[in-house]
Amino acid sequence: MSSTPVFRTIVRAGLLLALAIAVVGGVVGWLVVGSTGLVGALLGAVVAAVLVTMTAASILFANRFQDTPGYVTTFFAIVLGGWVLKFVIFIVLVLTLSGQPWLDRTVFLLCIIAGVLVSLILDVVIVSRARIGNVSDVELPGQTTGRDEGNSIS
């Protein structure tokens, strides 16, 4: 699929973003709140990493079934199923973790919101820089490989 390099870059950028949030949020949380703020920021960064990368990762995984007959059904089942799963994970984690005494709830949630917002900016930048051919997924008779060739991100 011609979109595979774009989604790989999005997943990579999301993981780097979570790392940056862990560092910045951890330092700020430690200075402002103390050790509970540090734990909140680190857990918030982990949750942000899951939330930010899960959709792109699910599309990457779903694209592996491109050559199967029920590709479109499988694709949307995986992507939208992953989307629902993401929200269930998010709500369960927030419900269980936000009441814990060893974690600062505000820092935890602010780290998640910061991760989601900054990831939007990253996504737009990555997609606007991506080079995807207009008709790159066409397969000519007798041609079986070469779909991912010629697509790159500048």
Binding site: M1, S2, S3, T55, V127, N134, D137, V138
Partner: peptide
């Protein structure tokens, strides 16, 4: 044939 482009745009929308 535009599926690759469209899924990227769909991702941004989502």
């Amino acid at each position: 044939e535009l599926a690759g482009r469209l899924t990227v745009l769909m991702y941004i929308g989502i």
